[in-house]
Design a protein around this nucleic acid. Structure first.
Lengths: 173, 173
DNA sequence: AATAAGATTTAGAATAATTCTTGATTACCT
DNA sequence: AGGTAATCAAGAATTATTCTAAATCTTATT
């Protein structure tokens, strides 16, 4: 009732399996989610799919609140707690990443591969940062230590802001 | 009235300048704080000195609450908000460091030099981690980006815990 | 040493992100 | 299709941290 299907299902190419799909952008993305969810051993619920898709649409590392509003526009019955639950499940399954800077509201990252994050103190932008070299060559840990999660967070001024800014903080090096 | 001076002031060796010292461990450490505070341009209050000293006594990255209880044992009038204020001032002055893992209570680090932190998910220990190489060679940022703060947080199992543990999480690599 | 001005401290209230609780709904296995 | 455990919605609860206002302290200046 809420979401009219944009094109008739019968015109879908052969090779597509599932039929009922209430709300989504492209069937491909939804299939992606279902496939990854199955591989991760988590249940595929509509809420998880919507939260996942909402995050995949964005490269700006939204907060749970951001995603909640976005998803709620399509499915008004969703609750913020559910968005938190979905994000936790997706994070634990390795499909997305959870990003924290200081005690600001958590942000979420669509890119599950190892990388760092840069936070611009001037414009507030958050961006992915490729890391040079293999993770375990970057630090020295006692033999026998097992590292399951690594997090690299940088703060400062992005190139655009740095040009015009007189920053109060001294650069690191 | 509250704090009797422990020794007569007149017997202090020449070369010492300041006189009144209410509560401290060793004069040396207090002098350290006063010197560093002066260099950083912050006021030297008794609370800041006590919080600083409490942190310097420990290598285990205590929380604000931990430090509050420790200092309160000596100076019962101190408030938790003051401990937070002092820690923020000391952090902003670069005398100590603020450490966050996920959304657990903030921890504080006595070592202001660049290094990372390792959190053991089994025993809860937090330890400093030396970083190999210079910071700005570890990641790739667009030209012109200014980095003022860098944070490396690792999570997993310390050598002791890893020996006996069957961990649920897969190691990173 | 006394004074003035502004910073800091205290105590408790307020904030806000996140988690918890409970009953209803849903996905998935057989 | 039916049974069962997982998940969801709604709102209350939690809790680390920040804010507020009045009192006190630090420091620079007499």
């Amino acid at each position: 009732m809420a979401t009219p299907s944009s094109s008739s299902e019968s015109s879908a190419p052969a090779g597509r399996r599932r039929a009922r799909r209430t709300t989504t952008l492209s069937g491909d993305m939804a299939d992606d989610f279902d496939r990854m969810a199955a591989r991760s051993g988590i249940r595929t619920t509509q809420q998880r799919r919507l939260v996942y898709e909402a995050l995949m649409e964005r490269h700006d590392h939204p907060t749970a609140q951001d995603l909640f509003l976005h998803v709620k526009a399509k499915v008004p019955s969703i609750s913020l707690a559910t968005v938190y639950n979905c994000l936790e499940t997706l994070t634990n399954s390795g499909l997305i990443r959870h990003v924290n800077l200081d005690r600001a509201p958590s942000r979420y990252c669509q890119n599950p591969d190892p990388h760092g994050h840069f936070f611009c103190d001037s414009c507030g932008a958050v961006s992915d940062v490729p890391l040079r070299g293999k993770l375990d060559t970057m630090w020295e840990l006692p033999a026998g230590t097992v590292v399951t999660h690594a997090e690299v967070n940088l703060r400062g001024y992005c190139a655009d802001c740095a040009k015009s800014a007189s920053f109060e903080n001294t650069p690191l090096s």
